[in-house]
């Protein structure tokens, strides 16, 4: 946390008054201690703690031994430090060992779920972003009759709640014989998402036409313009979109729950749900469950650490549709 910025600013500048105080230089120097500013920072710290500490607790639990959890429920450090939970998650423990450490003894194919999640998220992201970029190009840079009507129709689908289309889509995928296949899982997402089209269209609309028109005069066709001018120029928003889409798909639960129940295509979110319900009602395998939770969150955590700024800065734009 940088305290340098606040301290340079005005004394009175607390929660409610920073703007107002900028214009009054008299107050700017040496206020010994500003209670309002300190109070504001206390609130910020509480908010950060509420956002982050639960994850620490998950980590701490995943490194504990189940049988020791109850006796050390409030200990900030892992209770009887042990990597058994992770071994259990990755299938490195025999059933007897797992049961001895408070696991359910049932095998879960965590690597398989991980692979399925990666496949599902990557395929849908790549397809949706690319095809949506093509469509956005047609909506932003080409002139054709009915363009705005079709675009409004596409946008309107953002209003349709996913549950509403999920039922008929499930029947459709079932009729195609694609239940419990990766193809069935990705089909509804892979062609486009209304949001992706909307998001990219905004950027394409704002791009300068000069280069494009020069290329036109040189006889370049639309396909070349799309690949060599529009896509490279929109690399940044496309990367942001891909990032947001990937995270969204990684977290997707409802559709994979309907279509991908089978072990062979089960993704992590669905697998976690199954893992949880396997725990006998009396004594859940908390450390195993928390280890699985943390490992499932890891890819997003890594993306977040690598591209956090990109994600944060995209919110103001993407959220207000």
């Amino acid at each position: 946390m940088s305290t340098s910025t606040p301290s340079r600013r005005s004394g009175e500048a607390a929660i409610q008054g920073s703007r107002a105080a900028v214009g009054s230089p008299i107050r700017r120097n040496r206020k010994p201690f500003n209670w309002r500013r300190a109070g504001a920072w206390a609130l910020v710290i509480v908010a950060i703690a509420v956002s982050v500490l639960p994850f620490y607790w998950v980590l701490r639990t995943s490194l504990s031994t189940n049988n020791a959890l109850a006796a050390n429920a409030t200990n900030l450090l892992p209770a009887d430090f042990n990597l058994g939970a992770y071994k259990r998650v990755f299938g490195l423990q025999t059933a007897e060992e797992a049961v001895a450490e408070g696991g359910s003894g049932a095998q879960i194919d965590f690597w398989g779920y991980l692979r399925n999640s990666v496949l599902f998220s990557s395929i849908t992201t790549a397809g949706a972003v690319f095809f949506s970029a093509m469509a956005a190009y047609a909506f932003a840079r080409l002139r054709w009759r009915g363009r705005n009507a079709v675009f409004s129709l596409f946008l309107a689908t953002m209003m349709v709640p996913p549950i509403f289309t999920a039922l008929p889509n499930f029947l459709f995928i079932k009729n195609l014989g694609l239940l419990n296949t990766m193809l069935g899982l990705v089909l509804p997402y892979v062609f486009m998402t209304p949001f992706a089209i909307f998001f990219l269209r905004q950027f394409f609309l704002n791009m300068s036409r000069e280069v494009e028109e020069a290329a036109m005069l040189d006889g370049a066709k639309h396909l070349r313009i799309f690949f060599q001018i529009v896509l490279p120029n929109a690399a940044a928003p496309i990367a942001t979109l891909a990032l947001l889409t990937f995270i969204g798909q990684w977290n997707e639960y409802f559709w994979p729950l309907l279509v991908g129940q089978d072990e062979s295509v089960r993704v992590l979110t669905v697998g976690l749900g199954v893992f949880k319900s396997q725990s006998p009602q009396g004594a859940p395998d908390w450390s195993g469950l928390m280890a699985a939770t943390l490992v499932s969150a890891l890819p997003v955590l890594i993306l977040f650490i690598a591209f956090g700024k990109k994600i944060v800065n995209s919110i103001g734009f993407s959220g207000i549709k």
Binding site: A14, R19, R37, A40, S51, N251, G273, T293, A297, I311
Partner: peptide, 25 residues
């Protein structure tokens, strides 16, 4: 608070962390 006190992107990012996690998680 983000606008007037805690201006760093790091803080904003930290507060966004729970949102990036799956509902299941």
């Amino acid at each position: 608070l983000m606008q007037r006190v805690a201006k760093s992107t790091l803080i904003r990012g930290t507060l966004l962390l729970p949102y990036l996690m799956a509902n299941v998680i």
